[in-house]
Design a protein around this nucleic acid. Structure first.
Lengths: 350, 350
DNA sequence: GAAACTCCTGAAATCGATTGCACAACCAGT
DNA sequence: ACTGGTTGTGCAATCGATTTCAGGAGTTTC
C-alpha cells in the first residue's frame, strides 16, 4: 500500500534536515540568522520534499494576509478594469494578492466590504467607488479596527481618507474651454449618474468654463446620463426634441459620448459636421471611433499604480507621513476629429 | 487608562456567554446542534462583543480558503472583464472570494499560478487563458496536489481539464457564411494572435466556410492581428497595399475589427460601402460604432457564471460526475450595418 | 430497574506556521 | 580564570478557529 502523500509541511522539512521548525522558518525569512551549513541542509530538504509555505498558517500567526481588497463600482467598465490592471501589477510586484469586490448592483455594498475586512482576509482596502456609506467606512478605518484605506478615482469629500485622484473639475473646465475656443457659443453637457462625486465635479468644471466665457448655462442642454453607452443613446432622443440645439457637447465620459453620437447619427446628425463632442477617459476605442474622439485622458495606469503603492506603503509601514495623504494627478486634453469649429450659419453674429 | 481593545475572538464570546469555544463555534456553523437557550446567549454575546469570525483561522483548520483564483490573459479587455464580472457575482453568492491574477506580460505565468495555489490561498483555479504551460498545470491538477481546475473561454486540447467554452469554429463558420450569403466572393480574415487556440479555431471555421462554398483561401487576404485595436489598425495598411482586395473581412474579434475599419477609413475606404466586416464578441461598443458592427455574440455572462458554478460545485463537492466535464455554449450572429452586399461592379459575373 | 439512546456540552488536540526565551558554544578582553 | 558579548539553535507558546471524544443528563424500551 503506497503512502498517501499530503503536501509537505515545515515539520517534514525540519525532520529531513535534522533541525527544528524554528530553524526552517528562519532559513526562509531571515537566512542570515542561520549558519551556512544549516542553511544548505534546509534548502536541500525543501528541494527534496517539495515544500511550499502555507500562507494561511503564516497569515494567522503574523496577522497579515498579504492581500488587498479592491472595490470597484463596475469592473466591466474598461476605465476601471485598466486601473485594476495597474493595481494588480503593482501588488504582485510587492508580494500582495488582490481580492476583487465588484459593487455593481450589490446589496449594501459598504457592509459587504466591512465583513470582508473584518474577517481578516485582506490587510487593506482600495476603494474605487465614491458612493459608499461614509459612516460605515469611517468605522472601519478608525480604532479599534483601523483598516488601512485608500480611496482612488472618486473622491469622498471631508472623509479624511487617503486619496489618489485626478482633478476632475479642472479637466472638465479644460475640455469645455476647448469647445469655447473653437467658437462654440451653445454648449451642452451630458451628465454622469446622479449623486456621484465625479458627476458633480465635472459639472462644476463645465459650469465654471461657461461662466468665465459669459455663456448661458441652459437646463435644457444638460442631458441626463449615467456613464453608460445606452444612457448616451437615450439622451440623443432628448437632443433631437429640442427647438434650439447646442452646437457642442461635453460628455461626462467617453462611453456615454459614444452612445450619444450613435443616437444622433440615427437621426442624420453627424459629428463633427453638425456637432462637436468631447468626452472623458480616452478609452482604447476613442482614437478608432468614427470620428476619432476628442477627450480628456486620465493617467489611468499611473493612478492605479500610485493608489496601490500608497496603500501597500501604509501596510508595509514604509510611509510614516502623518495625516491625510492626497495625491492629485492631471489629465490631458487629446484633440481629435470629433471637435471642430461650429458651422458658419450657426456661429454667433460677430 | 482605557483598555486597548483588540478585535474580539471566539474566546471572548465564549467567556461572555459562559460557554466553551466549541459551543460558540457550533452555534455559528450548525445552530441546530445547540439548545435554544444557549443559542440565544451566544447570539447575544456575539452582538455585544461585536465578534466577527477570523476567516484565516477557519481556513487553516478546515483547509479551505473559500477563495478561487481567476487567471486572465488581459483584464483590460472588456471581453474578459465582463466574464470576470459574472464570475465574481456567482462566487460571492456562493460565499467565495475572488483573487485575480492578470497574466498579461507576466513572467512564467504557469509557475506563478502554481505558487499561488500551493500556498493554500485559494481552493480552486479558474483559467481563462489557453496559452499556459500544460505540463505545469497538469502537475497542479493531479495527485498529490489535486487542485480543482476549470478552463473557460480558451480550450486546452487533450488536457483532460474541465472546460466551459463556446464553439468557436462553428461560430466562425457561421460568421463567414453570412458574408458569403450576402454575395461576397472575395473574403479575407483578420487573425488573432499566433499560437493561440482561439485564433486557430476561428481560422478553422473561416476556412471551412470558404471551402464549402468553393471559394479561394488566399494567403494575402489573411491579415496578421493579435485581438487588439492597434493590430487591426496596422493590418489596414497591408490591406491598402494589395493589388486585388477582398470585399469582406471576418475579424477574429471586435477590437481588431474596429482598429481595421479605423485604419481603412483613413484611406477613404468606407464600411459597408466598400467593404463588409464581421467581428466577434459583441462588445458594448459594437452596436454604437459607426457603422454598427455585425458580430458573433458570445454568451459572456453565462459563460462566466457557468465556469464559476462548475468550479465551485467541484469545491463544494456537489458534483460527483466522473471524468472530464465539457460544457459548450453557442454564439449568435448579430447582424448590423457593417455587412452588406458587395458593390455591383465588384460582384462576380453571374 | 437496567440497558440503550439521544441531546448538549466542554476539554483538549489540531491546522502550520512564527517568535520569545533560554541556553550552549565560542571568542575576546582583562 | 572570569566576565561579557555574539552566534546559532531548539523548546514551547501562540495565532483563532474547528472537531474528536467523552461524559452527564434525560428519555425510552423491555
Amino acid at each position: 500500500m503506497t503512502e498517501l502523500k499530503k503536501t509537505p509541511t515545515i515539520q517534514d522539512v525540519a525532520r529531513f534536515a535534522n533541525v527544528s521548525t524554528a530553524t526552517v522558518s528562519r532559513t526562509l525569512s531571515s537566512p542570515d540568522r542561520v549558519s551556512e551549513g544549516t542553511r544548505a541542509r534546509v534548502s536541500e530538504a525543501i528541494r527534496v520534499t517539495g515544500y511550499t509555505l502555507n500562507q494561511t498558517a503564516r497569515s494567522l500567526r503574523q496577522r497579515t494576509a498579504k492581500t488587498i481588497l479592491v472595490a470597484l463600482p463596475d469592473i466591466r467598465n474598461p476605465f476601471f478594469s485598466s486601473i485594476l490592471d495597474a493595481i494588480e501589477r503593482e501588488a504582485t510586484n510587492r508580494g500582495y494578492g488582490v481580492l476583487v469586490a465588484n459593487l455593481f448592483l450589490a446589496h449594501e455594498p459598504a457592509r459587504r466590504l466591512q465583513e470582508y475586512m473584518l474577517s481578516n482576509r485582506a490587510d487593506g482596502l482600495l476603494l474605487l467607488d465614491g458612493s459608499l456609506d461614509v459612516a460605515t467606512l469611517r468605522t472601519l478605518s478608525t480604532a479599534p479596527y483601523s483598516v488601512p484605506l485608500v480611496v482612488a478615482c472618486e473622491e469622498i469629500p471631508n472623509s479624511g481618507f487617503h486619496m489618489v485622484l485626478t482633478d476632475n473639475m479642472q479637466a472638465a473646465e479644460r475640455a469645455t474651454r476647448h469647445l469655447i475656443d473653437l467658437g462654440h457659443r451653445r454648449v451642452g453637457h451630458l451628465l454622469g449618474p446622479e449623486h456621484n462625486v465625479v458627476t458633480r465635479e465635472r459639472l462644476a468644471g463645465f459650469t465654471k468654463a461657461l461662466r468665465d466665457a459669459d455663456l448661458p448655462l441652459r437646463q435644457d442642454w444638460m442631458f441626463r446620463g449615467n456613464f453608460e453607452m445606452e444612457s448616451g443613446f437615450a439622451a440623443a432622443a432628448h437632443f433631437m426634441a429640442l427647438a434650439e440645439r447646442p452646437t457642442a457637447i461635453f460628455a461626462a465620459n467617453d462611453e456615454s459620448a459614444i452612445g450619444f453620437l450613435s443616437g444622433l447619427r440615427q437621426h442624420g446628425i453627424e459629428c463633427p459636421r453638425d456637432i462637436s463632442m468631447v468626452g472623458f477617459d480616452d478609452l482604447g476605442v476613442a482614437p478608432h471611433y468614427s470620428p476619432p474622439l476628442t477627450t480628456m485622458r486620465q493617467p489611468r495606469e499611473m493612478l492605479g499604480r500610485m493608489a496601490a503603492e500608497t496603500l501597500i506603503d501604509l501596510l508595509d509601514e514604509l510611509d510614516h507621513r502623518p495625516g491625510q495623504l492626497r495625491i492629485v494627478l492631471n489629465s490631458d486634453l487629446i484633440v481629435r476629429a470629433s471637435t471642430g469649429h461650429p458651422r458658419k450659419e450657426e456661429a454667433p453674429a460677430a
